[in-house]
Amino acid sequence: MLEFSRTGLFGTSAEVIARAAGVTQPYIFRLFGSKTKLFVECVRISFAQSTARMLDAAEGLSGVNALVAMGNQYRSNLENNPDVLIQGQAFAACANEEVREAVREAYGSQWRQLAEQAGVEPVQMKVYMALGLLLNDLTVIDAKSSASADEQWVHDAYTVIDSSVFAALGTLSNVER
Rank of each mutant, 00 (worst) to 15 (best):
L38Y: 03
E41N: 05
E41T: 00
V43L: 01
V43K: 01
I45N: 05
S46T: 02
F47H: 03
A48N: 09
S50A: 07
S50L: 07
T51Y: 04
A52I: 02
R53F: 08
M54E: 03
L55T: 01
A58D: 14
G60C: 07
G60Y: 04
L61F: 11
L61G: 01
S62L: 07
G63Q: 12
V64H: 13
N65I: 00
G71D: 12
S76Q: 14
N77H: 10
N81E: 07
P82H: 07
D83K: 02
V84W: 02
L85V: 01
G88V: 01
A90P: 02
F91C: 00
A92W: 06
A95R: 09
A95F: 13
E97G: 00
E97P: 01
V99S: 05
R100Q: 14
E101L: 09
V103L: 02
R104Q: 10
R104M: 09
E105H: 03
E105M: 04
E105F: 06
E105L: 04
W111E: 12
Q113K: 13
L114F: 11
L114D: 10
E116P: 01
A118G: 04
A118E: 04
V120D: 13
V120E: 12
E121P: 00
P122A: 15
V123I: 15
V123R: 11
M125N: 09
K126T: 14
K126A: 15
M129V: 14
A130I: 04
L133T: 05
L133R: 10
L135D: 15
N136E: 11
D137P: 00
D137C: 08
L138D: 05
T139E: 15
V140S: 04
V140R: 06
I141S: 09
I141V: 15
I141D: 11
I141P: 03
K144S: 12
S145T: 10
S145E: 14
S145H: 14
S146K: 11
S148C: 08
A149M: 09
A149C: 08
A149R: 14
E151Q: 13
Q152E: 13
Q152W: 08
W153G: 05
V154C: 02
D156Q: 11
D156S: 10
A157S: 13
A157G: 02
A157W: 08
Y158R: 06
T159K: 08
T159F: 05
V160M: 11
I161T: 12
I161A: 13
I161W: 14
I161R: 10
D162N: 13
S163D: 15
S164V: 12
A167P: 00
A168E: 14
A168I: 04
A168V: 03
G170A: 10
G170H: 11
L172C: 09
V175A: 15
